[in-house]
Design a protein around this nucleic acid. Structure first.
Length: 494
RNA sequence: GCCGCCUUAGCUCAGUUGGUUAGAGCGCUUGAUUGUGGAUCAAGAGGUCCCCCGUUCAAUCCGGGGAGGCGGUACCA
């Protein structure tokens, strides 16, 4: 039969929308999370961890009229036929946790949470199906003080993450303004199609930054055809309605106080709208008193933030610096986090209104943005590598590495089977800052040679001749064995 | 989901108007430069030309279907 038995070889590949991360990519995220968590901790938030899976009904992601979860969440049935889903954010699990443990928790309840979330949707640039979120929420506190704190916290977190002041902006809006706008524009009907129209209007406004005023006008009216020829149905507003809506989103003024003044005028007669203005006014006054001015936190009337559960103030953190990708094309970062007030979320479980406000920071996007900004700054991040030149002296080499580790340094012994040149090549590829060399010669004199690989690489640029390169033995020096740790520390400090 | 473009070596890409051994650069491996990463030189490994079906004496190339990638758009808690 088969002369060549075909062995099944699975293709080694990571599922689409997911990806592996190695070394500095991971430690960079860990460090950032630690810095953000420290800010949350300092503000009094308690750490919380919840499982990756939740029952789908608790997440609120069943499709209407179908006994099946929303396609956007990863779901499976438990062995008792109950639907379970991977969490798609950290807010829904929080609502479940608060409802489940309501009586025992201090109110207001303040917690922060860090972890992966999953979304089963089309991946795009900077958009994955698993990514890390870092949230803080205050549950059981009404506006505007908790909301103002959240905005301030948001700004602090951005700076803790490494975004310098001026490179980010926290934009602020209130959902009640948008509701009031609907009243004023004559879109406040109760029928299902009125609701659908309002949603379409909100979605159109959300695209202001990307499509510009003209694009949004099209979406508010008949509809818009995009670059690929695809047509998006519009909200079918008449010209007067479009003008009114556009005049609202473009009413953002230089200062928050001016914006609020304009809004009071705009919303004369709309109770809902005025309530929103009142809250924004109080928040921005309070923030200004703490030193958070328009350079960090600004009212921006085009911020929408999703359609589902926000009931009051909404915030969004945007990066404002420019960057280009590895092909030199300009990159638009978009939002790196958002949040707002959601007074109805716990009500789903408990029947009582529990006011809550929170923020969510997209750590993966922040890291991607920072990486593009500092694209030149690649530093040696590997361990100090102790070369293993004499095979029967491994214990001595391990001893050196151990001493370096005891001094708090990253160090390892070369464990492969190759010669001197290969070992240095390995150290180079690892991004090792230094190599520790003790061969026959050094051993005889009770010495070690310390080679600065970073400096050596720099020097090599001016050397063409191999003989000169080798005999010059650039960027290395020899010390007594007993002085190893001190010498390495000194070399690393440079 | 919808629209468009794309898929040949680890990477970036040539190429075959359908024909026997499918190429380059970079990378990788090994060696030389007698214990030193770079540079140089020499040799070498590596490909179901995305998958399946069809047309054909013959398909990496033509036709159909599928998958994956990229971009736009929609949705986005």
């Amino acid at each position: 039969m088969a002369k060549k038995q075909k062995t099944f070889r699975p293709k080694a590949r990571v599922p689409r929308g997911f990806h592996d991360r190695l070394g500095s990519e991971l430690t960079a995220e860990r460090d950032m999370l630690a810095r953000i968590s420290a800010v949350y901790e300092a503000h009094g938030f308690d750490a919380l961890e919840t499982p990756a899976f939740e029952y789908t009904d608790a997440l609120g992601k069943f499709l209407p009229d179908v006994d099946r979860p929303n396609a956007g969440v990863f779901s499976l049935t438990d062995d008792d036929e109950q639907w379970m889903s991977l969490r798609y954010d950290l807010t829904a699990p929080l609502a479940r946790f608060v409802a489940e443990n309501y009586d025992g928790l201090p109110k207001p309840f303040r917690r922060y949470q860090v972890g992966p979330v999953w979304r089963n949707e089309k991946p795009g640039p900077g958009r994955y199906r698993q990514f890390t979120q870092c949230d803080a929420d205050t549950v059981g506190a009404p506006a505007p003080h908790a909301d103002a704190e959240m905005c301030a916290l948001f700004a602090d977190v951005m700076e803790a993450a490494g975004i310098v002041r001026g490179d980010y902006i926290i934009r602020l809006n209130d959902r009640r303004l948008l509701a009031g706008l609907m009243e004023i524009a004559g879109l406040a009907g109760d029928a299902a199609e009125d609701e659908a129209q309002r949603m379409t209007v909100l979605r159109a406004l959300d695209k202001l930054d990307r499509l510009g005023e003209d694009g949004v006008k099209l979406l508010l009216g008949a509809g818009r055809k995009d670059a690929s020829g695809d047509f998006t149905e519009g909200a079918k507003l008449d010209a007067g309605q479009i003008d009114r809506v556009i005049s609202f989103v473009t009413a953002t003024a230089q200062t928050n106080a001016q914006t609020c003044a304009r809004l009071r005028e705009f919303f004369t007669g709309s109770e809902t709208g005025l309530a929103g203005v009142q809250t924004l006014d109080e928040m921005t006054v309070q923030l200004a008193a703490l030193g958070y001015k328009e350079d960090r936190i600004r009212i921006d009337l085009s911020i929408i933030r999703g359609l589902e559960y926000y009931t009051g103030p909404v915030f969004e953190a945007d990066l404002t610096f420019e960057a280009t990708d590895d092909k030199g094309r300009p990159v638009r970062f978009g939002s790196v986090g958002g949040g707002g007030r959601y007074d109805g979320l716990v009500k789903r479980f408990k029947g009582v209104e529990v006011p809550a406000v929170g923020i969510s920071v997209g750590v993966s996007r922040l890291l991607a943005a920072l990486a593009l900004k500092e694209n030149a700054a690649k530093v040696a991040t590997g361990p100090v590598v102790v070369l293993a030149l004499e095979k029967d002296r491994m214990a001595a080499y391990q001893q050196m590495a151990a001493e370096l580790r005891d001094a708090g340094l990253r160090a390892e012994v070369y464990l492969g089977g190759s010669n001197f040149a290969k070992q240095l090549k390995y150290a180079d590829k690892r991004g090792a800052p230094l190599a520790i060399i003790q061969g026959e010669d050094e051993r005889a004199k009770d010495e070690v040679t310390i080679k600065d690989l970073v400096l050596g690489a720099a020097l090599s640029k001016n050397i063409e001749d191999n003989k000169q390169w080798r005999e010059g033995q650039p960027a290395q020096f020899t010390v007594k064995r007993s002085a190893l740790v001190e010498a390495v520390k000194k070399a690393l400090a440079r």
